Amino acid sequence: MANNLTHFDPFNELSRLEAFRGFDDLMKNFRLRSMFGDVDTEPRIKIDVTEDEEKYMVKADIPGVKKEDIDIDINGNEVAIAAELRRDKEDNAGEAVVRSERYYGKQYRSFTLPREINEANVFATYENGVLQMTLPKKSGTSSRKITVN
């Protein structure tokens, strides 16, 4: 049973179509673009979730954070990942920031899985900006079909 846990973004999907490749260029000249064009959004934690009979495997891209700054919370079948990228204070006398595009702050991602997780046996590692989690499925958990009278 494969589940697609990807958040749907209609504009992102449109930009992939050949007919809309110039959509971004078109929006650059649109009046509202100038009002919102320079607003940076925080990066999303991108995830891949796969499963087999016993467990879910999650890979989450969280570059630039220390493993001590990653929090994972599991409640039943809900998984939440929070990470904080801290800015190092640099005090360079005589230097002024011309442009800063690197993101600093908190990122958060949560998702729901079809079956509950056995929290006691969860295993997580973080290496090269990728968080990998093994989430064992709780045994004995089954869904019950309800008949409507």
Rank of each mutant, 00 (worst) to 15 (best):
N29Q: 09
F30C: 07
I74M: 07
I117D: 00
D24Y: 10
E90K: 12
T112N: 06
E18F: 08
F20T: 00
D71R: 15
D40E: 15
K67W: 12
N128M: 08
D24W: 10
E13S: 03
P63W: 08
D38P: 02
R16C: 07
V49I: 13
D73Y: 12
K67V: 12
D91C: 10
A124Y: 02
E119W: 02
I72L: 14
N75W: 11
A82Y: 12
V79W: 04
M57F: 14
G64M: 09
F23A: 08
D52Q: 03
M35Q: 08
I146H: 02
A80M: 13
I74Q: 01
Q132N: 06
E51K: 05
K66W: 14
Y108V: 09
K55R: 11
R144S: 12
R86K: 14
I62E: 03
I72V: 14
N128H: 05
L32H: 06
G76T: 01
E13C: 04
T125H: 02
L5Y: 02
D9W: 05
K138E: 03
D52V: 03
D61I: 12
V58Y: 05
V58L: 14
P10D: 01
R21V: 06
A93W: 10
Q107I: 08
R44Y: 14
E51L: 10
T6N: 08
G94T: 00
E119P: 00
P136F: 03
V98K: 06
M1H: 04
Y103I: 03
S15I: 05
T41L: 15
N3M: 13
L5S: 01
L85G: 08
K89A: 15
V79E: 01
F8C: 04
N4T: 01
K46F: 15
A2F: 09
E95K: 07
Y108E: 10
P43K: 06
L85P: 02
R99M: 14
F111K: 00
L17S: 02
D52W: 05
N92Q: 12
E42A: 15
F23G: 02
I74H: 01
F23R: 01
N4I: 06
L113Y: 01
H7Y: 13
A80S: 13
N92A: 15
S143L: 13
E68W: 08
R102N: 07
P10W: 04
I146S: 02
K67T: 07
N4E: 03
A93N: 06
Y108R: 07
E116A: 11
I117E: 00
K55W: 07
N128Q: 06
T112F: 12
T141M: 15
E119A: 09
N118Y: 05
N121I: 02
D91S: 13
K28Y: 07
K46E: 15
N149Y: 09
V49Y: 09
D71E: 14
L14A: 02
V98F: 13
R31F: 15
